[in-house]
Every structure is written in structure tokens, then in C-alpha cells.
């Protein structure tokens, strides 16, 4: 198949917002003279995703990440432009598209609130007409990987956030969709559950599932995705391999050092020209360009001046990378202020 699995061309979505004056008077006036402001949530997006690719879709709040996902899943009808997912136009052929995809919204559960998780799964089995043997096998696998056993008899409302997310992941994957959209899947989860979810996503990608992951927690994508698409103001401002973005923009590392006895920071600055040393003589940080110094060189230079009790190196988060894109590191600044 030549066509990419997900293909969007010049996709836009414009919301009309009522332009009300403040307070009751403003609302009343709005009833008579209607004024709207147009808000371009998505402003001309071109995106191709090949089968089996795992793409990180990253941006600040209000950048248009979720709106893109809603257009690709057929929840919203685009204002203009084209979109095809596995040969189907999602908003026109919603049901055919729904069979191909699994969707997880981090902020919103898809479980039936007042039903036990097991009942939710049975309803989904019927909805997708999953053959019984297939269903049993998939459920058994998901139960094991996501440790769902204790959750099955519990109603949706009684699950903790972490439990809910595990059940939600299973609910999105019961029908083994070839395409999975994850919208902020780790939002609000504690580290332990986050790690588990990320590991699960890695396996999912390894098994050939096409994944589009939106997030602003950049730990998610380092584990799962090779390609990163950065959006802002409804436009794609960068699209390329994750590693390249890291090399280009995430050159800076920090080493945090606790010496056994206080040292003179000026001496360290002298030993490592071009770095930035901050903090106290008893505990300080050295920011360095990883292409100018290796971590070993920095550590050796410090050890030449003081005995080190403890030290730690911060890998650059993609968060910093994105911030630097926004600061103008990669592309010209985008048009339109996000909400």
C-alpha cells in the first residue's frame, strides 16, 4: 500500500466562540447582536504516518494536539482539508473508522461509570463483534500484562486513577486495533504506574501497532516513539526523528555535585571553561554542552579539585527541547496565540 496509514492534508478546524461582553448584560446583548470570534484550533496540518510508526505529537496546552486527534478519530468534522485513516474518511465513515482504531483519553474514562469493568469489556466485545475465543485470548493477555485481575469486578467509578487508566487501555485494545491514539495517557499517574504504562506502550509498538501519542510529559515519548512532531498555534513547527531533535536542541546537560568538603567554585569555572557553574561551595551544578565535554571529563575535572560525595547527571528532558523550539531554536515563531 503506497498511501500512508494516516494522511492529513491542509487540515484545519475553526471553532466559533461567542464574543460576549462581561456579566449578565453582556450575555443579554449577545442574544440580540451575535458576535463571534473565530479560533483556529488547527491551522493547516499536513501529516503522514506510515503503518507501524510510533509518532509523538507534542505541544503546549492548547497547541492543537487533542483537536488533531479528534479530527483523526472522526469525533470532529474538519473545517477544511482532507483526512484519511486506513483509506477511510473518519468523519464520513465513522463506524468503519472506529473498527480500525483504539483511543485512550488520559483525562476522560471510556468505561461505563456504573458497571463493573468486566461488564464494560463484555459490552465492547459485543460492540466490536469480537469472536469469543479471540476475546478470551486477548482479555487473558491484557489481564496479565496490565494486572487487571483485581479490577474486573469493580465498577468504573470506584477505580483509582491508575487502575482506571489500566482498564481504559485494555478497553481501547480489546479489539486489537491496528491504529492506536493515546491522548495524554499518563496524565496524573504516579511514577510506578507511568512506567508500567510506558512499558506496555513499548510492547505495543514492538508488535507493529501504529501509535500516535500526544503528551506534554516528555518521558512518555522517549521510551516509545522514534519520531516527534511538535505543534504550536495549530501548526506543525517541527517534524523529524526524536534523536535528531535531541542532538540539535538538547545539547545541554547538568551535573549536580555534592563535594565532601566545600570547594571554591571559581576554581571549577577555571578548570572547565565554557560551562556554567552555579550553587554553593557545598553543593553546586555544572551545565555543559555534551559535544564540548563528556560527562567523564567534567567529573574528572571536579575530582581533581575536590573529593566527590555524591553526584547526579540530568539528561535533558524533551520538555527543554520543546521549550527551545518555542524560543526559536528550530523554526520561525508560529502565528496565532494559543488559548
Amino acid at each position: 500500500m503506497d498511501e500512508p496509514l494516516i494522511r492529513a492534508r491542509a487540515l484545519t478546524k475553526t471553532f466559533r466562540r461567542p464574543d460576549k461582553g462581561p456579566g449578565l448584560a453582556g450575555s443579554a446583548r449577545h442574544l440580540i447582536t451575535r458576535k463571534y470570534t473565530e479560533h483556529h484550533a488547527i491551522d493547516g496540518i499536513d501529516l503522514d504516518v506510515a503503518a507501524g510508526e510510533a509518532v509523538a505529537y507534542v505541544g503546549r496546552n492548547g497547541a492543537g494536539k487533542s483537536t488533531t486527534v479528534k479530527l483523526l478519530t472522526g469525533i470532529l468534522v474538519p473545517s477544511s482539508g482532507e483526512v484519511r485513516v486506513a483509506g477511510v474518511v473518519p468523519h464520513q465513515d465513522r463506524i468503519a473508522n472506529a473498527r480500525n482504531i483504539g483511543v485512550v483519553f488520559g483525562q476522560r474514562t471510556q468505561l461505563w461509570w456504573d458497571l463493573p469493568v468486566r461488564e464494560t469489556f463484555t459490552l465492547l466485545r459485543d460492540m466490536y463483534r469480537i469472536p469469543p475465543e479471540r476475546y478470551r485470548a486477548t482479555l487473558a493477555r491484557l489481564t496479565e500484562v496490565l494486572d487487571l485481575g483485581p479490577l474486573l469486578p469493580v465498577t468504573g467509578r470506584k477505580l483509582s486513577l491508575g487502575q482506571r487508566m489500566r482498564a481504559d487501555l485494555a478497553a481501547a485494545l480489546l479489539h486489537e486495533p491496528p491504529i492506536v491514539y493515546l491522548d495524554e495517557p499518563t496524565i496524573g499517574l504516579d511514577i510506578e504506574v507511568k512506567d508500567r504504562v510506558r512499558e506496555f506502550l513499548r510492547d505495543l509498538v514492538a508488535n507493529g501497532t501504529t501509535v500516535l501519542l500526544t503528551t506534554h510529559d516528555l518521558g512518555d515519548i522517549e521510551d516509545v516513539c522514534r519520531r516527534i512532531v511538535i505543534v504550536d498555534g495549530g501548526r506543525i513547527i517541527h517534524d523529524g526523528p526524536l534523536a535528531a531533535v535531541r542532538d540539535e536542541l538538547a545539547r545541554e546537560r547538568s551535573m549536580h555535585v555534592q563535594p565532601a568538603v566545600p570547594v571554591d567554585l571559581a576554581a571549577i569555572r577555571a578548570a572547565l571553561p565554557g560551562t556554567e557553574v552555579s550553587g554553593e561551595p557545598g553543593e553546586f551544578s555544572i551545565r555543559f554542552d555534551r559535544f564540548a565535554y563528556s560527562a567523564g571529563q567534567v567529573a574528572a575535572a571536579v575530582m581533581g579539585l575536590a573529593e566527590i560525595r555524591d553526584f547526579r547527571i540530568d539528561e535533558p528532558g524533551i520538555e527543554d527541547v520543546v521549550r527551545r523550539v518555542y524560543e526559536g531554536g528550530l523554526v520561525e515563531s508560529p502565528t496565532g496565540a494559543p488559548a
Binding site: 472522526g74 469525533i75 463506524i95 473498527r99 483511543v103
Partner: peptide, 13 residues
Amino acid sequence: RGELDRMLVRPYP
């Protein structure tokens, strides 16, 4: 509340 989203991604009217 946008709760219709979850129904729209399911293959059922």
C-alpha cells in the same frame, strides 16, 4: 462536557 467523544470512537450508532 464533551462526553460524546467516547461514543464517537465506538463502532455503534
